[in-house]
């Protein structure tokens, strides 16, 4: 069964009196363990698609099945629970809580999951991204690359099926960016589905599959043949 199934999804915003059709009927499926990029020019609807896939938003029409569950009809609180259990977010601006240290930031999803013994899991997640020794540093005491690693640790701490990354290397220099992508590769090897929204063709080139968005539609669905890219 596919992990993600998007069928004829449309999204329309009203801005003032104007209706903006951000998505005009998009359909695709994503299998567990895929490593996939969504590309497209500004205004192509890729951010909207990202928000929908991340359960931050609901489609205006069409259906979105996440792990077999129809997300289109769920309440805000149910969506929050889905995000908590199934999805980890990695943002371009890292989006860490500035007053909390690395460990506390990583613990945040566990807190909302109602898990009490959080310390150990958070430490493990930080260790996975190679930041075990930075656990008690605050975000501003960390470099950009380190902050993004903390964000990745936060994304994986609750063992989600999917990681959604929005321009994850956009605020990093190219070397640090490559390190982050290496972390993603490693995570994908462990079976996590990775979906990246990006402008950067280099990142897209490293992915197994690229969805090209144009004008709110899926223009192209390219499979990069790469050995060992299939899901375990």
């Amino acid at each position: 069964m596919s992990l993600i199934e998007v069928r004829d999804v449309e999204k329309t915003y009203t801005m003032g009196s104007m209706a903006v059709h951000a998505l005009r009927g998009v359909s695709f499926t994503i299998a567990p363990g895929e490593y996939l990029a969504i590309m497209g020019p500004s205004g192509s609807g890729k951010s909207t698609l990202m928000n929908l896939l991340g359960c931050l938003d609901k489609p205006s029409a069409g259906t979105y099945l996440l792990d077999g569950e129809d997300v289109s009809q769920l309440s805000d609180d149910r969506l929050a629970a889905l995000r908590n259990r199934h999805i980890g977010f990695v943002f371009q601006q890292f989006n860490l809580l500035p007053r909390a240290n690395a460990l506390q930031n990583v613990e945040l999803p566990l807190q909302y999951a109602g898990i009490h013994d959080r310390r150990e899991k958070a430490v493990t997640a930080l260790a996975k991204v190679g930041l075990a020794d930075r656990a008690h540093h605050r975000p501003r005491e960390l470099s950009g690359g380190e902050q993004q690693r903390v964000a990745i640790a936060r994304a994986i701490v609750n063992e989600p099926a999917i990681i959604l990354a929005d321009e994850p290397t956009g605020n990093l220099d190219s070397r640090t960016g490559r390190d982050i992508l290496q972390v993603f590769d490693d995570l994908n090897q462990t079976g996590i589905t990775l979906i990246t929204v990006t402008h950067d063709p280099d990142i897209a080139a490293g992915c197994h599959r690229v969805l090209h968005m144009v004008d709110g539609k899926l223009a192209n669905d390219v499979n990069n043949k790469r050995p060992g890219g299939e899901a375990p």
Binding site: A80, A81, N84, L108, Y112
Partner: peptide, 16 residues
């Protein structure tokens, strides 16, 4: 506002 957004993204419900 941004903090609220982050908390919601990682699973905070309205009540939280």
């Amino acid at each position: 506002t941004r903090e609220i957004g982050i908390r919601k993204a990682v699973g905070a419900r309205r009540r939280d």
